[in-house]
Design a protein around this nucleic acid. Sequence first.
DNA 1: CAACAGGTACGTCCAATGTCGTACCTCAGT
DNA 2: ACTGAGGTACGACATTGGACGTACCTGTTG
Lengths: 111, 111
Amino acid sequence: MVETVVPQADTDVLDLGAVLRALADEHRRAVMIELAADRSDGERTCHSFNLPVSKQTRTYHFRTLRDAGLICETNYGNKKGVRLRRAEIDRRFPGLLDLLAAEFSQVNPAS
Amino acid sequence: MVETVVPQADTDVLDLGAVLRALADEHRRAVMIELAADRSDGERTCHSFNLPVSKQTRTYHFRTLRDAGLICETNYGNKKGVRLRRAEIDRRFPGLLDLLAAEFSQVNPAS
DNA sequence: CAACAGGTACGTCCAATGTCGTACCTCAGT
DNA sequence: ACTGAGGTACGACATTGGACGTACCTGTTG
């Protein structure tokens, strides 16, 4: 089986509107905060985020994040990898990920 | 007639969710981008932003911005002043206003 | 005072959004 | 080959959000 990188956002340039709409949702924001706070930028399973929603809804939210250009997904067939597009985001919106990462410490004081 | 400062956000601390939801809307974002780009932080009339909506809708949007803690409004009876809460925002979300200001140059290349 | 402009309150309306059920797919493990 | 877990597609549904009509208020200006 060949893993395939899911096609990224149609727009090669990140759109602030799409990004902010993506971040406006609590669950998607939680995902982005975790990703932003992890400086190792390792690949995560999208199952590894403990989102309190059904898997259909999870698919929907990750699709939204991908469409906004915030993450890139790798399809392994029966599971999916998620990586933060840190370089692209930092280039277009410097400071945005720092803001989110700061929010992580805000919510997780003991880490 | 005494001008009265409209009571600010109920929550004394800015909430990232509320802020991002406020910024997710195109019109409110346009207002915030203008305010963030004007380093003089002068008071504006909320009529001075050329929002292509009715005045009822305008009231709604400025109320949303105020509730999110992003602006503070002064009531002059028959018109209303708007000021950016730059200090509070910078303290809680450093870099956010820079991001918005950068978007201003993006949209207004000739200024 | 009368007319007018800016603003608010309340209700209504429509489109967008988040949620899930059902059905189906893909791979890993037994 | 079967089963189970993760994932997607499509459709349905309820809620939310942005928009406006109508009515009303407050100052300014003539």
